[in-house]
């Protein structure tokens, strides 16, 4: 049977303004998690009853360590940021259907925006061949060294120009004229939409990780849907981000205007 875990926080650091890295000693999840999956983190405060879906940044299977990098975006994530080394936290996972890895592909292009960057780290670890990572941030870049340590050539864009290219990550990516066999995107919706458009124009397949407000995280509540039109189906369907995704083929996503 699957179950909830109550692992110990072995490390928690602020790595950029409003962004935290939390390491959990959780062998069960670390051993089975795949790139692009997420976990549910639960708050201790009784008024916040729904779990927060947090993407898995990295796992250390041998040591049983799970690294989560998250942004403080509301009261729930703020409460996580106040937890200290030695505290325990309620966790469910690994959840969701992550990135598909095709070993025949030689060149991989990773595109991440802001807090969409963390799952690309575990992905890079699993990819063979050349990896180019294009990362966009409002200000301070995160996880650049981690991606480089797994062999990725990293290019950074910031909105304010404080690091790397001044502008958005899609412009940066287009300027570099790099192409490959598969694109993997995680970040805000406008970025994902642009990634999908570019991939379509270039005739390259792209996998994008979607985000939506969730309740259960395990496919029951049908709260977190996005519109997906599969080739073999006549019409689009509302599919669950938590279990049908979070990673979808960009060509199948129908964007709301």
């Amino acid at each position: 049977m699957k179950k909830l875990y109550y692992p110990i926080i072995i490390e928690q650091n602020q790595i950029a303004r409003g962004t935290f890295s939390m390491k959990l000693q959780c062998n069960e999840i670390a051993e089975t998690a795949l790139p692009g999956q997420f976990v549910n983190l639960y708050c201790r405060e009784g008024e916040m009853l729904l779990p927060r879906p947090i993407s898995i940044c990295e796992t250390d299977r041998e040591k049983g360590i799970l690294t989560l990098v998250y942004a403080v975006v509301g009261k729930g994530t703020e409460s996580f940021s106040r937890l200290k080394k030695g505290d325990t936290i309620k966790v469910l996972g690994p959840l969701g259907d992550g990135f598909k890895i095709d070993e025949s592909i030689k060149t991989h292009i990773l595109i991440g925006g802001g807090i969409g960057v963390p799952p690309l780290v575990e992905l890079a670890k699993h990819l063979k061949g050349e990896i180019y990572a294009f990362l966009g941030f409002a200000e301070s870049p995160i996880l650049v060294e981690e991606l480089e340590s797994y062999g990725a050539k990293v290019f950074v864009a910031t909105d304010d120009g404080s690091a790397g290219f001044k502008g958005n990550v899609i412009e940066l990516f287009k300027n570099k004229n790099i192409t490959g066999g598969m694109i993997y995107g995680c970040g805000p919706k406008p970025m994902l939409k642009a990634v999908g458009k570019w991939a379509e124009d270039m005739g390259i397949k792209a996998q994008i990780s979607m985000e939506e407000r969730m309740a259960c995280g395990i496919g029951v509540c049908v709260g977190c849907v996005c519109k997906i039109k599969k080739k073999e189906e006549e019409d689009w369907q509302n599919r669950k981000v938590c279990t049908d995704g979070p990673v979808f083929w960009s060509e199948e996503v129908i964007w709301d205007e």
Partner: peptide, 23 residues
């Protein structure tokens, strides 16, 4: 039934709102 558009979930104090729409 396709149900309603997203977002369909909002957490509130000690509860939640949903507007799934019976998908």
């Amino acid at each position: 039934w396709k149900g309603n558009d997203s977002p369909r979930i909002a957490e509130t104090y000690g509860g939640m709102l949903n507007s799934v729409g019976l998908q």
